[in-house]
Write a protein that binds this DNA or RNA. Sequence first.
DNA 1: GTTTGTGCAAATATTTTGCACTTGA
DNA 2: TCAAGTGCAAAATATTTGCACAAAC
Lengths: 134, 134
Amino acid sequence: MARMTRQRSAVAELLDDVADFRSAQQLHELLRGRGEGIGLATVYRTLQALADGGEVDVLRTADGESVYRRCVRREHHHHLICRTCGATVEIDGPSVESWAAQVGALHGFADIEHTVELFGTCSACATARGVRGD
Amino acid sequence: MARMTRQRSAVAELLDDVADFRSAQQLHELLRGRGEGIGLATVYRTLQALADGGEVDVLRTADGESVYRRCVRREHHHHLICRTCGATVEIDGPSVESWAAQVGALHGFADIEHTVELFGTCSACATARGVRGD
DNA sequence: GTTTGTGCAAATATTTTGCACTTGA
DNA sequence: TCAAGTGCAAAATATTTGCACAAAC
């Protein structure tokens, strides 16, 4: 039910090499750039399978694109993302977990799940901007 | 630069009446149901303008639809959303705010913004499901 | 009267799917 | 072998846009 193919290996390897979130289309272009013969549909199908299996994180950008990234941690966690250069840090926050559960219970909600994403300017980008006086 | 038209009033009124997040398409259908002659494109344009002006909240559903809702509170806040019936509760969480700022600072990030959404099953839906033994 | 807004339909963009062909186990 | 995977192109979905017409100020 999960056959190892040239295409799937290529996607897996690419995800190992790439540090931040990339869209399916970007990943497809990168693969093509590496000389991999792979169709866009296959990239989508592979990413979807990986996401279902919890092997990659999926985020939705503000303009409605799905972006994917290999998850370093196995447990539930969140992201801190630089809004300028896209650098990401994986973080966890026990306090948020418990806060979410509490708030949910307070309003009579069960099975609480939550999405938390932090956006900011990383020190490198802040410095760059400071220098340029932007 | 912002002319008041029949269509815009209709959208504004509808947003006042509707409690939870609705997609542009749903809002358009609701307007048509009310007998308002209004085009889908106009609904999109109007919602976009309202969102730009900070008068409505925009969320992205997991399947890539944008959903809109008039913001009751002026201040920054979050949402608790029933994944079954879509009921929403606006919440605030000082602990999350400070946690976000701390985590950001710890990693050298400035200007931290965050998105936090909680999803759960509201008591009504939990009961309904329990009764059916689903 | 002029400028802004609207409706429609066509264009875009992203993701999904049908189907014949290929390929891994 | 042969079910699972792939590629392509067409379909589906959500949203945007060009343009002629209508309407607000």
